[in-house]
Design a protein around this nucleic acid. Structure first.
Lengths: 229, 229, 229, 229
DNA sequence: AATGAATGAGGCTTCATTCAT
DNA sequence: CATGAATGAAGCCTCATTCAT
């Protein structure tokens, strides 16, 4: 009749590898977890990495993680949101393209250099570091609706910036008319694939070379003959 | 207080249709499973779709699937291998680019049309149908080593073909010199991103327009000034 | 780069106490689980009993249970639904009270005996066995919205039947007028408490005595003086 | 594909109000916690309410609670002990039933009024307020051994008082002979069920009506014919 | 050839309690 | 006195795979 009461007493604190607990202020801990999590997600893959991995890497107990995030997914989401926020900031802070002046006065070299700089800015906003980069381009895709949505938002930001540049350059007479939507996608996709190729071979990502190649192609194409139309 | 409790009891596994068993020859069954599996993987995503989904869709019992494939992963692998094989065939069957003749005799329009045709062939080999396309570009990435390897192989085939074309065209004098590896990646990546954009918006994929845009950019770029170097 | 693939292979089938697996048809298994579950829930209490307990008692693996029920809660729910169904049946099958005849012709003893029989029927429908009884009166209360709702439904059935009897008896002139809603609750509550008291002391539940006491009180009260109103 | 994902990130525990700390004397704090806890336990249910809820409601930190109580359970226990103590007091303070005089001199109305008053006293001791009432009758049952024991003690007090009254009334000749144990249970159970019904429908508990109905039934029953035995 | 019941390792998450500040 | 960050045991559930029929 009487219930066994199994009074949920805590057994001796498991004196195994038992590292002492460390204390951090909430904000600091949150940031630390995010930091560590990015690494773990990249190194082991979001799906393969389990919450235990995250906590071990952050040297915290499993429960601690759940004081800061609702779920494993929420951790990834927070990582991505962070990137997204940074992208928004960087893009908003860029000078307007109209600052460049009129085509008549600008030399080809200046144009090239300007485009390269601008593209590099864009990429650096998105690809803060290689971990983030791998996450965005490779690991975090197709995981789950809400994560995908953040990635889509980042993507949309980048594309919008690119489109805006292209449209302005067309208006100012630097570039030929054309479907800016498609062209923006082509350029961003091209750059992404070059980056991905490097990542896949574990080669260092030479952003300079990639940017140069992209701008060269974007501006002048490959043909030795001038287009007539 | 009240919980939004979902469906209480399971429909008692047996009772979900009690369809009569159907018999098929081994080859036919295997093919049918692959066919159905592609759909299921695309519609629900490889990870979310479970073996039960596959079997239900194929109207077979769980054990039956395991008589034809070693594992769930093996099913996806087989789907991808099929695509890979087709790509290899198509690419091997294409005419050699040298058939085109010398730059002196070929008009700009002919070059454009040739490039467009060739790119379209390449894409159609890879993207047999929209399901395959979604699988390759979106869903099957980063799932697992061996699947990734097949996708990488497909990718490598496409890139190799493109690189080969570019190198030949450079040798023949149609195109400027340049790093064919990077350029091939840029072009393929650009095209893929245009396709992905369409997929993401559930818009029909207008391969013609995409190919046209790609070739135009690839050949002539966007600049209104001729490059001087 | 390559993912470790942890190919989820099943390790040797754990040759511990390893009882051979037993096969049952879906319906039979489902029934067996329900049967065992009722016992376990009663013996250990719904909250204390864990899914492992249920499965151990049913000699099945944990996954098996989840082929038949969505959750631990769903198991309890199914047990209760079963009772609820039986109550509905039994109550529907009872003869209508009007069969009794007119007060003039019926002796006091007959009335008493009739009431006792009728009350016993009602109780036996609800309290099929002691396990069910403990579950309904003690263990399953306040656990969770949906379970509570089923219990409330059972309760409502019993009360409705009782109310209906009372109203009919009033109409026929056997009983004094009065608030049937409240009176029904009083009687059922009184009976339940007598039962609960026995349960709490692990004494056998003497339904006969309980029914006799209840009917005696219900009909004639305790007073030695006749009420004047 | 899209998941109904709930709130992504937790509000970073610290940031949930950053209320200045308040200081209270030990006794006052203890009392305040008990007070708040009763509310929380009733509103959310003992099991669902977690320690965080208690502390938030009491506007204290988690550790603080554990300076006054050993465990969550101890808090509930203290609440119940408080009630139990009050019941003991009230019951001890009631006048002895023998004060009433002999049946010959007491009119039926006086008896009825006396019984009603006495029952109301009993109930009011137990059901101090609606929160307590819900706790005792609904939420705190079957939670755990020691809590159950306190409830059982309260119940026993009430039953003992009732039994004592009944026995005395029988001795004095007001009431028919009968099994006081069972009868006491019947009456208390009946009253409780009427109360519970009201609670369940969130209707106000009309103690007066309930007491009247109970006493009427208890004394005179429902029959229109006088019992012969 | 086909079936579908059975399995159990492994994952995620909760929450009462502890303890450094 | 008070705090709130940290903890980890314990629980529920999923699902790829096996195997008796």
């Amino acid at each position: 009749m009487s219930v066994p009461t199994r009074s949920r007493t805590r057994p001796a604190p498991a004196a195994r590898g038992a590292r002492r607990r460390t204390y951090l202020k909430a904000d600091a801990r949150r940031a630390q977890i995010l930091d560590v999590a990015k690494d773990v997600f990249v190194k082991r893959g979001y799906r393969v990495a389990n919450v235990a991995d995250l906590c071990r890497a952050a040297r915290i107990g499993r429960g601690t993680l759940y004081q800061y995030f609702d779920s494993k997914q929420a951790v990834l989401l927070a990582v991505m949101e962070e990137v997204c926020g940074r992208v928004e900031q960087v893009l908003a802070a860029r000078p307007r393209i109209e600052a460049m002046g009129s085509p008549a006065r600008v030399s080809t070299e200046e144009i090239v250099r300007f485009c390269e700089g601008r593209l590099r800015q864009l990429l650096q906003a998105v690809f803060v570091d290689e971990a983030t980069l791998r996450l965005i381009l490779r690991d975090a895709r197709g995981l789950d609706g809400s994560v995908d949505r953040v990635i889509a938002r980042i993507d949309a930001h980048a594309l919008a910036a690119l489109e805006h540049d292209l449209a302005a350059a067309q208006r100012l007479g630097f570039l030929r008319k054309g479907d800016v939507r498609l062209i923006a996608r082509f350029i961003l996709g091209g750059v992404e694939k070059m980056v991905l190729s490097a990542l896949q071979e574990d080669a260092p990502v030479d952003l300079d070379l990639i940017v140069k190649t992209a701008v060269q192609l974007e501006l002048y194409g490959l043909s030795r003959k001038e287009a007539r139309r």
